[in-house]
Design a protein around this nucleic acid. Structure first.
Lengths: 206, 206
DNA sequence: AGTGAGACTGTATAAAAATATACCTATTGC
DNA sequence: GCAATAGGTATATTTTTATACAGTCTCACT
């Protein structure tokens, strides 16, 4: 069971989440859509690496022939991601605060991971510091205007409301104390880390 | 959920077994081989019957797109209570909006039921109309000042922050548009229906 | 400066799987 | 007797999937 690169563990985590959600392993094409690869071969080669390193098992010639190796499949629930360092992939082991027994299917569309909110920029949408968001990671899901998204702007992860106008994207806070962030898709780097599909508040200040 | 013919339940049983065994739903061809059909269509039509009778769900156009729709599924999770009529017990069947697959142990202390919030009286605590509260119903649990509670005052169910001063109880909203409710324990009838231990927001306005 | 791993893009292609259509044969229940 | 239904054969056709091959680009080593 070799070490994985951050990207590889991100992909493995997504496969786990997806299998927990609908008990069907993904196809290459589904992986490709989720990570916005432009070629199914990117998915294929990642799968091969994961198989070579002993994390999954590939049944050749069978549709969806992906199986998690023993020891990996007892991960029930969803990973809770805490403070994410700039530039690092979301689902890397280092940022995992834990695993919560939450059914991905509770949300629609199903959630892929949980993210702990930092700060009060979405206060007026009823999202407070310390709240936990359920997030769907799927690159093929283009955000609708007004939808809440988890995005990465120049490395920094943030939760905002999405509004797009051509090449101009506005990331709108829900708190008058904060200013909207303007992003020019041609100049700035913007990655969509998922759309918010649910909210969970446990313990803390209820 | 219609009755199955012996042959059909034989096939359903086989599908169940196969999915339990290697967690991959079978293809039409695999079914055909297992039952020595001479055409994949025999499998196809059986699957259609099983789908029509509500035992499985077919995702059209997807390889291995067969999902069991757990017929005799155990009541897992917690009941979601909707609009409660004045004077009626909380957990009466009539007010049950559904059952959500939420692990009671996700919250601490564990939750006993879920309650759909109506109105905006707790807006500034990040609880919006339509949100779902996880509630612990435990008569031995006396609310602490400042804790959020589900109470019934003269028949009406409401969610507020608790503050007690001798025989005087204040039910405090978290929204300046609403006024605190004053309750005299000697004059008014007040029942504690539980303390709020968590919040869940799914779908709707995220 | 050269090398190799990692993370892809882009283009094909064959195999696997889903699905449509046509037709056949027993029962079962009027 | 006859329609409706379950269970089946046989043969396409279309879509999905898996997978091969040839590159590009970047970054960490040495």
């Amino acid at each position: 069971m070799d070490e994985l690169t951050p990207r590889q563990s991100e992909i493995l985590a997504w496969i786990r989440a997806r299998m927990a959600e609908d008990s069907l392993p993904p196809t290459r094409a589904e992986l490709m859509r989720a990570f916005a690869f432009r070629s199914p071969n990117a998915a294929e080669s990642h799968l091969r690496v994961l198989a070579r390193k002993g994390h999954i098992l590939l049944q050749s010639g069978t549709a969806r022939g992906i199986r998690l190796c023993a020891g990996e499949e007892e991960e029930i629930g969803l990973p809770l991601i805490g403070r994410v360092a700039a530039g690092q992939p979301m689902l890397a082991e280092e940022f995992r605060e834990g695993q919560l027994p939450v059914d991905p299917k509770l949300f629609s569309p199903g959630a892929d991971y949980l993210l702990r909110v930092q700060g009060m920029s979405m206060r007026d949408a009823g999202i407070l510091d310390g709240d936990i968001l359920a997030v769907r990671h799927d690159a093929s899901l283009t955000p609708q205007d007004g939808q809440m998204v988890v995005v990465r702007v120049n490395g920094e992860v943030t939760v905002k409301r999405w509004k797009r106008d051509g090449n101009q994207v506005w990331l709108l806070p829900e708190n008058p104390d904060f200013s909207p962030i303007s992003v020019d898709l041609q100049r700035d780097s913007l990655t969509i880390e998922g759309v918010v599909v649910g909210l969970l508040r446990i313990g803390g200040k209820l």
